[in-house]
Deep mutational scan, measured.
Amino acid sequence: AEKTGIVNVSSSLNAREGASTSSKVIGSLSGNTKVTIVGEEGAFYKIEYKGSHGYVAKEYIKDIKDE
Rank of each mutant, 00 (worst) to 15 (best):
K50I: 05
E41G: 02
N8L: 09
V7D: 00
V38S: 03
L29T: 02
E48L: 14
E17G: 05
Y49D: 01
V25E: 04
G27V: 08
K34Y: 09
G27N: 03
A57W: 08
G42Y: 03
H53F: 15
D63G: 08
S30V: 13
H53P: 05
S52L: 14
S52K: 12
E17F: 04
E17D: 10
T33W: 06
K50P: 01
R16F: 15
Y45K: 01
E59S: 07
K65F: 12
S22W: 07
S52M: 14
S23R: 02
G27Y: 14
K34E: 08
S22I: 08
T21Y: 14
V25P: 05
Y45Q: 01
E48A: 10
Y55N: 00
A19I: 06
E41V: 10
N14M: 13
A1W: 15
K3M: 10
S22L: 10
T33Q: 10
S22M: 09
Y55H: 01
Y60F: 14
F44G: 00
A15M: 15
S11P: 10
H53Q: 06
K3P: 04
Y49I: 08
G39Q: 03
I47Y: 02
V9S: 12
K50S: 07
I37R: 00
K24F: 05
L13F: 04
E2C: 15
G51M: 06
K58N: 00
E40L: 04
E48V: 14
Y45D: 01
K3I: 09
T21E: 14
I26D: 02
A43C: 11
S28T: 14
G31M: 11
N32R: 06
D63E: 13
K62G: 12
L29Q: 01
K65E: 10
Y45H: 02
I26P: 00
T33A: 08
E2V: 15
A57N: 09
Y55D: 00
G51Y: 04
T4H: 09
G39T: 03
A57V: 07
E59A: 10
S20T: 10
I26N: 03
D66F: 14
T33V: 09
K62D: 11
G5S: 03
I61V: 08
V38M: 08
E40T: 06
Y55K: 00
V9K: 07
Y60S: 08
E59K: 12
G18N: 10
G18S: 15
G54W: 08
I37C: 04
V56M: 01
A15N: 03
L13W: 02
S28N: 09
L29G: 00
R16A: 04
T4Y: 14
F44L: 02
S22H: 11
V7T: 06
Y49M: 06
K46M: 09
V35Q: 00
K58A: 05
S52R: 11
K3D: 02
I37Y: 00
S10H: 10
V9I: 10
H53M: 09
V25I: 14
K24H: 07
T4E: 06
A15V: 15
T36P: 01
G31K: 13
T21Q: 11
T4S: 10
Y49P: 00
A19E: 03
L29W: 02
N8T: 11
E48G: 02
T36H: 10
A19H: 04
G39Y: 04
A1M: 13
V35L: 03
K50Y: 11
V35A: 00
G54L: 07
S30N: 10
G51R: 03
D66R: 08
D66A: 11
I6F: 09
L29K: 02
E59L: 08
F44A: 00
S30H: 11
S10T: 12
N14P: 15
K50V: 05
I6P: 01
G5Q: 03
G39N: 02
S22K: 11
I61T: 00
S20G: 05
G39R: 01
E67H: 12
T4V: 11
K65L: 10
G18I: 06
G39W: 03
Y49V: 04
S52N: 08
N14Y: 14
S12D: 08
D66I: 14
N8A: 12
A43P: 10
V56L: 04
